[in-house]
């Protein structure tokens, strides 16, 4: 991938867009778009407020707990589906349905089953993230070269050791890709869950700012969220790059 070589200068164009934003904001054309620098200033102030910090803790907690569950469930289910054809046939259809289903419609159900609290947000994150992790893990397991499995068998590795020493390691690139995509979806899930519940975390803040037309704060929060989403994606992306070398060799 030459992308990495290209990416650094490519991302520089974002600065250009920020400058454009600043100009539009300064011209005062639309009250919805305050100058970019004003948004940055608001972001700085926001970060230092107690409300924001509490909301951040709530949001991060829901995100990471939800992701933890998604990984803890998604990877084993994916491994199962990849290794056991019957499980694959029984579950495959539903995983495929839910990976692209409008899960936002399920949040109201979670709200009545789990209450209007953080549990619902955790469940939303889980629901958004888990399916893609299952699918990618399954794909990774199915891509394990047959010769590696035969090698393990011919050297006397049992089921368990084949799984831990061959299958999981060989599928690791796909599993990590699934987790990265799951995290991107999880961030969306945490925001959608909180927006719909609208009394906890960032959802409460969004609600507050948009009701009171506090555009600078609104955009500041949005930018912080976007930055967090990119950070999460890039973080796992870097981990993936570290093990990409043997994924390349494997093909």
């Amino acid at each position: 991938m030459t992308l990495f070589g290209v990416r650094v200068p490519m991302m520089a164009s974002l600065i250009l867009w920020c400058v454009l934003w600043e100009i539009v904001g300064r011209l005062d054309l639309i009250f919805l778009v305050p100058p970019f620098t004003a948004v940055l200033a608001a972001a700085w102030e926001l970060v230092n407020t107690g409300t924001f910090q509490r909301a951040t803790v709530t949001t991060l907690w829901a995100f990471f707990v939800g992701m933890g569950f998604a990984i803890a469930v998604g990877v084993p289910v994916g491994l199962l589906m990849g290794r056991v054809p019957a499980a694959d046939r029984l579950l495959g259809m539903w995983v495929n349905v839910f990976v692209s289903a409008p899960l936002s419609a399920l949040v109201p159900v979670l709200m009545i089953l789990l209450g209007m609290g953080e549990t619902t947000v955790v469940a939303t994150v889980f629901l958004f993230a888990v399916w893609i992790i299952v699918l990618d893990t399954r794909a990774g397991v199915q891509h394990v070269p047959a010769s590696l499995l035969e090698m393990a068998r011919s050297y006397g590795a049992g089921r368990w050791r084949t799984l831990t020493r061959i299958v999981i390691l060989s599928a690791l690139p796909e599993i990590l890709a699934g987790i990265r995509l799951g995290m991107i979806r999880g961030v969306k899930g945490v925001v959608i869950g909180q927006l719909l519940i609208s009394i906890i975390g960032y959802g409460e803040l969004f609600e507050l700012y948009s009701r009171n037309f506090l555009m600078e704060q609104f955009w500041a929060l949005t930018i912080l969220l976007f930055a967090f989403a990119m950070l999460v994606a890039e973080g796992v992306g870097m981990l993936e790059k570290k093990i990409e070398y043997y994924a390349g060799v494997r093909q």
Partner: peptide, 9 residues
Amino acid sequence: AAPMAALIP
């Protein structure tokens, strides 16, 4: 990568 849903309000 961003949660665009935040912009719906």
